[in-house]
Design a protein around this nucleic acid. Structure first.
Lengths: 353, 353
DNA sequence: TTTAGCACTCTTGATGTTTGAGTGCTAATA
DNA sequence: TATTAGCACTCAAACATCAAGAGTGCTAAA
């Protein structure tokens, strides 16, 4: 089934007009708005044809047409033109991201916020995590006889630490030994590879009767576990309520609740096309809560291994063109910042002129 | 103006019934529901009196009464009985908080989530920050000739770190010197006390032409600045939509947007009564967006100096009794955990049995 | 001081009625 | 053959009308 150029043009006009106005679009108003070279009657015939093809539908007899899921899909796949971002938008994105790059933990949530702000839809972001993370290196910083800091550098280049207070005394000599044994026996291991046998034998060879090793390895396991799971951020949820399709609060509430559930966010569609955006429309979404919403996601990556996701949720009547362009730009910027030159400090880091 | 006992009883019944049903309460239905010993006509007279006192109001002639702001205020101040939490609730709170205590960063946001979940209203939480924070101690962990980790222990007992990659080589000897000079000259200083003179003279005495000190001190300033500002978390925003007063999406959106604005949250009312909850009702709130909502806040503290806030937002028709009780319990639990025994590790830390 | 009774008010929901945008079809036109 | 003008028809949304019911205030009796 191949569409004539005119049919494509009309489908596109209907989709874009419906996205803009949220009202079913009729033949007359379509002719008025876009300046097509034909009369409303012709449009009517064409629309009727598009309807039998399953691309448009009628809410009821005497109303205009709205796109079906299939109609949106065709629009997204073939008709939509990727639009260039305005200068202001690109500048805004660049400066916002660059400002946050010092705080690596924050940049992801900030990117989500930025996306939401720019698109006027709720946005979410998942942090990038490496699959099997290990600890590359331990360090112990003695504080006093009752406390020390344990520092672990992970294979994904992040560093974690914890201040540990004890209710018994510990010599700095002991801490040195602890440090040595941690680095000798507990580096390069995934969380699953750290067995209680390993701990026992380490305790024996250190002569550790106080459970120091247990404490330190406990910390290691804790952060390896925590690092396994993605973190998720949601921003601009209130934008959902701007759209007439969510004027029914129950509907809105269902979706908002769904979106604020961390574990559900992780299950949202992932982009399969690398680097590009992926769009899932209405019933294409697996989650029941999203059967009449659409999701646009993009992937960003950090180095070669890790990748995170940033996405936008909205009604099926979403401004796909705009959202896809902006999202894609933001994801690219994020990838660039996170993989690239900006984490190298020393040349352009102005902290106080 | 002193209220008779019966008037108090009636006001209380009206408030509680309105909170439960969200419908104006009439004299007849009030007699039916609560078993008052008098007829509806008597109630009518009393209600009419309460209305002239400004405690109740009429939406229109032939409707029941609803409490005014003043009515709620009187209810909250004098009539409300603090209710005991159910065993399940206390157990739930205890176990939830205890589970999260290992991850200190997370416990505050988790407490917010818990509060929202338990009360069915949106909840927010602000992290506790000490007023003037300083760095107590630095540590440098060499990685290779192009990288090292810098660790800072702050006066509030938190530890921050950053992996620093360089585009030039640095000897471990140099790093040792750097470490020594940082600890000698840059500890115990607030962000404002770190001047460029200090940096210059340190660079001179270290013979640092590479800007190592600048990098390290830049990191110090960055975290001191970041540590100054509170962090805020919002949880369960979607609960707002459950209430009929927010069936109008525009209204709901205004409030949700307001609440998701970090800087606005910080301006919300702070409890002045130490440890206890504070309730601000409708127009008592300074923010225009909250003129017909209510806020219940409690304070938690960490040690002697630091204090954070945890609060709940809802319609003026909020279940104050329930919210105040739960919030107060959660804040107390939080204070206890954050100030107390649980951060001491070594005795009860089971990481892998 | 309380209560029963009653007229009155005003919202709410049900039931028409009108309006207008939009359709589908037919017949004329290019 | 493709397009267009014209026209009858449809249906949601907006508006008006009406009855039911919950609630009030007032008066007079207990």
């Amino acid at each position: 089934m191949e569409l004539s150029d005119r049919k494509k043009q009309i489908l596109r006009a209907v989709v874009e007009r419906y996205i803009a106005t949220a009202e079913p679009v009729g033949s007359k108003s379509l002719v008025d708005a876009c300046d097509l070279k034909v009369s409303s009657a012709t449009i009517r015939n064409e629309m009727s044809a598009l309807e039998t093809m399953g691309l448009l539908e009628h809410p009821h007899t005497s109303a205009g047409r709205i796109p079906t899921t299939l109609g949106y899909r065709l629009y997204v796949n073939e008709l939509m033109e990727r639009q260039r971002l305005s200068i202001e938008d690109t500048e805004l994105i660049n400066s916002m991201l660059r400002n946050k790059v010092q705080q690596l933990d924050r940049i992801i949530s900030e990117a989500g916020r930025l996306t939401s702000q720019l698109t006027n839809y709720p946005a979410y972001a998942l942090t990038a995590k490496i699959h099997e993370c290990t600890i590359e290196r331990f360090a112990i910083i003695p504080i006093d006889i009752h406390a020390f800091i344990i520092v672990a550098m992970l294979s994904d280049d992040t560093v974690k630490n914890k201040l540990i207070r004890l209710h018994f005394e510990v010599s700095s000599d002991m801490l040195n030994k602890l440090n040595a044994i941690l680095n000798a026996r507990f580096t390069g291991l995934t969380e699953a590879q750290i067995t209680s046998d390993l701990i026992l034998s380490a305790e024996r060879s250190l002569g550790d009767t106080l459970g120091l090793i247990s404490i330190a390895v406990g910390f290691a396991i804790e952060i390896l576990l925590a690092n396994k799971s993605h973190e998720s951020y949601l921003a601009g949820a209130s934008h959902l309520l701007e759209h007439p399709e969510f004027k029914d609060t129950e509907k809105a509430q269902r979706i908002l609740q769904y979106l604020s559930n961390e574990s559900e966010l992780l299950k949202l569609p992932a982009p399969d096309t690398f680097g590009n955006t992926r769009i899932t429309i209405g019933p294409e979404n697996l989650a029941n809560e999203l059967k009449d919403s659409s999701v646009v996601v993009a992937r960003y990556h950090v180095g070669d291994d890790m990748e995170g996701i940033i996405g936008v949720v909205g009604p099926t009547r979403m401004d796909y063109t705009q959202v896809a362009s902006k999202l894609s730009y933001i994801a690219q910027g994020l990838s660039w910042l996170l993989s690239g030159g900006f984490t190298l400090m020393g040349d352009n880091d102005d902290f106080r002129k």
